[in-house]
Amino acid sequence: MLADPFENIVEQVGKVVLGKKEQIRLALACLFARGHLLIEDIPGIGKTTLAKALSISLGLEFQRIQCTSDMLPGDILGVSVFEQKSGSFTFHKGPVFTQVLLADEINRATPKTQSALLEAMEEHQVTVEGQTRPLHDPFFVIATQNPLEHSGTYPLPESQLDRFLMRIELGYPGREAERRLLKGESTKKTLSEMNTNLTRDDVKSMQENIGTVFVSDSLLEYLQDLLEFTRTAPHFHVGLSPRAGLGVLQTAKSWAFLHGRDHVLPEDIQAVFYWVVSHRVSSSEDLRGFPKEMFDTLFQEVAVP
């Protein structure tokens, strides 16, 4: 019963982003777990489309910023402008005052601008000119970024990366999906045709329900074993933080809920683990990232209780 609206969204978004149902499910699990999502891949693969489609399907207020290197924090947060009529400064809200914020190509912004988002993402509030203003609820940031090797990018620092609950990659579409794409099933058209089948209250209540998903002791044991392994095994440069552990658990709960269960299974942990932690760990051989295959050995080594 619970799975139905969820599968409905997946279906909807899947019409726009062809052949990427797994990524859509992960992204939804992330958003329902109140987490921010980072989509990373080369240009032209459909990152922005996915982000747009997600926000439309959730029926939330949506703002988009295109990050560039000359962008300033004020362009995101908003500025106070002197109004001659009233003779006083009035605050003009920036694009951050919304429910879903799409920060396109976030790693093209300078570190200064990037960090302006930091408070917003973590505290769900912004402080401009000494005054703290709360953001909307729910508030999601969906950011996209190009792989780090590309020119003209400012890599996100670890602390900033850590604010994202999940990082997903889209990858090339499958052969059949690409065929449909090439046949011209226009994304623009489908996007505008998408109907919003959820409301803000639906999203809120789902988020609350996810909080009640049951987590057993033996599952926590399994999660702790996994965390412990990343901290002691030699292939990991730095182990996972407690925040990463919380993130995995939160996402796994969301994943379980979206699959119609009221309790978390080891499979849920395994399904989301890589996507939640891959941007928070680095391998001791290659400090830039962590190949997915190495996580398979992690699951082989740490037995399910």
Binding site: L265, P266, E267, Q270, D296, F299, V302, A303, V304
Partner: peptide, 9 residues
């Protein structure tokens, strides 16, 4: 049962 397998798998 491989060690990585949860009950559903």
């Amino acid at each position: 049962r491989r060690p990585s397998m949860g009950p559903m798998d």
